[in-house]
C-alpha cells in the first residue's frame, strides 16, 4: 500500500478545537476592549492605572496567542512557507520605507500579502508571529499583536469577498481595515504606554488632549488619522504586487483558486 506524499486535510476535532480557541480569543479581546471603553480609567500610574496597564497587556497578548494556537495547526504547507517570507518582508520593506523619510509605516506589506494569497487564518497568524519576532528587537510592540492579527484577517476576508478582483477596491478595503485596526489598538497605546511611540503622533494626541479629549479619545482619533491611510496604501501596493506575480505562481495557492481572488486570472 502506498502512502500519500501530502498531508491529510485537517480533521473535524482539530477544526472544532480551532473554533473554540478562536471564539475564546475574540471574546477576551472584545471583553477587554468593551471594559476599557466603558470604564476609561483616569489614573495611569497610580494603583488602578498599573493594574489596568498589566491587565490590558496580558489580555491582548493572551487573545493573540489563542488566535495563533487556533490558526496555526490548520495552515497548509504553502501558507507555512510563505509566512516567514512575509515576516521578513514586513521588516525589510518597512525599514526601506522608513529610511526614505515618508511619514508612513508600511510595515504590514507581508501580512497583507499572506492574507491575499493564503487566506484570513494565515494572515492573522502572520500578523501575530510578525509581532512576536519583531518584539525581539522592540519589546513595546508585543501587546499590538492582536491588532496585527486583525489586519491579516481583514486582508484575507477582503480577498475572499472579491476586493482584490478590482485593484481600485483594494484601498477601500484597506481603509476599513485601518479604521478597525486603529480602534482595536488604541486602548493598548493609551492605557499600557500612555500615548504613542513617536513624537509626531504624540504631538497629534497632545493637540487633541489640549482640545479637551480624553486620553483614549485622543489616541483613537490619532489612530484614525494615521492607520486608514497607511493600510489603504498597503492594500493597494500589495494588490499591485500580487497582479505583478505570474499566474502560474498565484494559482499554486489553494485559497486564490478556490475563492477566485484574482478573478479570471487565477485560473491561469
Amino acid at each position: 500500500m502506498s502512502h500519500p506524499l501530502t498531508l491529510p486535510a485537517a480533521d473535524q476535532t482539530r477544526r472544532g478545537r480551532g473554533r473554540l480557541l478562536t471564539a475564546l480569543g475574540i471574546v477576551l479581546l472584545a471583553g477587554t476592549y468593551a471594559a476599557l471603553v466603558a470604564t476609561q480609567p483616569a489614573g495611569l500610574v497610580d494603583g488602578i492605572g498599573q493594574g489596568v496597564a498589566l491587565a490590558t497587556f496580558g489580555a491582548y497578548l493572551a487573545a493573540a496567542l489563542l488566535l495563533l494556537a487556533a490558526a496555526l495547526p490548520q495552515l497548509p504547507p504553502a501558507a507555512l512557507t510563505l509566512i516567514p517570507i512575509a515576516l521578513a518582508l514586513n521588516i525589510v520593506l518597512g525599514q526601506f520605507v522608513g529610511s526614505v523619510m515618508i511619514p508612513l509605516y508600511l510595515d504590514s506589506i507581508g501580512t497583507v500579502l499572506v492574507g491575499f494569497l493564503a487566506g484570513r487564518r494565515a494572515g492573522a497568524a502572520t500578523g501575530i508571529l510578525g509581532t512576536l519576532v519583531w518584539s525581539l528587537f522592540n519589546p513595546t510592540v508585543l501587546p499590538f499583536a492582536a491588532g496585527a492579527a486583525l489586519v491579516g484577517f481583514l486582508a484575507g476576508t477582503a480577498a475572499r469577498i472579491g476586493a482584490v478582483r478590482r485593484v481600485y477596491l483594494a484601498p477601500v478595503a484597506g481603509l476599513v481595515a485601518g479604521v478597525l485596526a486603529g480602534v482595536v489598538s488604541a486602548p493598548v497605546a493609551a492605557f499600557v504606554f500612555g500615548g504613542t511611540a513617536g513624537v509626531g503622533t504624540g504631538a497629534l494626541v497632545g493637540a487633541f488632549r489640549a482640545m479637551g479629549d480624553s486620553l483614549l479619545g485622543a489616541v483613537t482619533k490619532q489612530a484614525l488619522l494615521s492607520d486608514p491611510g497607511d493600510k489603504a496604501i498597503v492594500f493597494l501596493v500589495v494588490a499591485l504586487l500580487v497582479y505583478a506575480l505570474p499566474a502560474r505562481l498565484t494559482s499554486r495557492f489553494d485559497f486564490v483558486r478556490r475563492h477566485r481572488v484574482l478573478g479570471r486570472r487565477a485560473a491561469g
Partner: peptide, 28 residues
C-alpha cells in the same frame, strides 16, 4: 518602492512556492 519591492516579492514568493511541496513531502 516599485523597483525594489516587485523583484524582491516576486523572487521571495517564488522560493516559498517551490519550498512548499518539499516540506509537505517530508511530512511537515
Amino acid at each position: 518602492l516599485r523597483l525594489r519591492a516587485v523583484p524582491l516579492v516576486l523572487s521571495s514568493v517564488h522560493d516559498a512556492a517551490d519550498r512548499a511541496p518539499h516540506l509537505a513531502a517530508r511530512g511537515f
